[in-house]
Design a protein around this nucleic acid. Sequence first.
DNA 1: CGGCTAAATGAGAATCATTGTCAAACTCAG
DNA 2: CTGAGTTTGACAATGATTCTCATTTAGCCG
Lengths: 139, 139
Amino acid sequence: MTPTSGASAPRMTKQRAAVLDALSASDEFRSAQSWHDALRHEGSTVGLATVYRSLQALAEAGEVDAVVTDTGETLYRRCGAVDEHHHHLRCRVCGAAEDIEVPQFEEWAEKVAAEHGFARIDHTVEITGVCAACTAKGH
Amino acid sequence: MTPTSGASAPRMTKQRAAVLDALSASDEFRSAQSWHDALRHEGSTVGLATVYRSLQALAEAGEVDAVVTDTGETLYRRCGAVDEHHHHLRCRVCGAAEDIEVPQFEEWAEKVAAEHGFARIDHTVEITGVCAACTAKGH
DNA sequence: CGGCTAAATGAGAATCATTGTCAAACTCAG
DNA sequence: CTGAGTTTGACAATGATTCTCATTTAGCCG
Ligand SMILES: [Zn+2]
Ligand SMILES: [Zn+2]
Ligand SMILES: [Zn+2]
Ligand SMILES: [Zn+2]
């Protein structure tokens, strides 16, 4: 065992940096496969598995947000407010999204859950639609 | 083409009835596979594909509710308030759930979306946790 | 600056939930 | 009852995500 306690920070490999870069350059929610494509188009040779692993790690670390679509696909996005808990208004067509806060929702959820005897509460609040740009394009 | 207009109501086959029965006998959110298992254990010989098709049809018809878990699995449940729009407080361990209403949420969502130029709004609000029974069992 | 070792990568196989295929079985209007 | 269009079921095919494992590499030490 390593004498130093705690979990060491993940290594900063060039591929992880590339993933982070790509995410930082766009404000859209995209799937792992989509981010992988983007990286390849930029000349990177990252493997698909690595993109999946990086995104998962980043999501767990709270560096990026992840949402699951109604088709089961997981989409990732680097949000402006890193680490801050928030929700999203996302375009189903292009993935563009904005962070939003839902007034008093957290408190309300806690209360309702407690009233029903539920513990270890978690919640999902997402609003989707078609953004102005996509609507203009006829979507 | 059939002279009568519109889509005819889906046929009531014994397997679709069986699926509906199973759903009506439980208040838990379960996956298609899980419902299929349950039906088989009851002696039914329904095929897995049929269970999937039935659940989808029922969900589209608004007869049952469907939620997508964070692992991408779709869970189905026959809710007390059929056809009424509502949200859920669900146990991540056993699937037990209760219908809940979120005060003024729909109106709020519409407003926020409109302010951002989004059209064809939809939303997801789900609260999950571990129910009292499951907590007692040490989950 | 090398050397070293555990962590990270990539190519491809393997999973898993879900969907598609198509011949056979079935519902139900007439 | 009968015929025609539906629905079913066994199984193949998908598609997203995960796993395997040999190979590379980041980060640490001297
Ligand atoms: Zn966000
Ligand atoms: Zn858009
Ligand atoms: Zn419900
Ligand atoms: Zn429970």
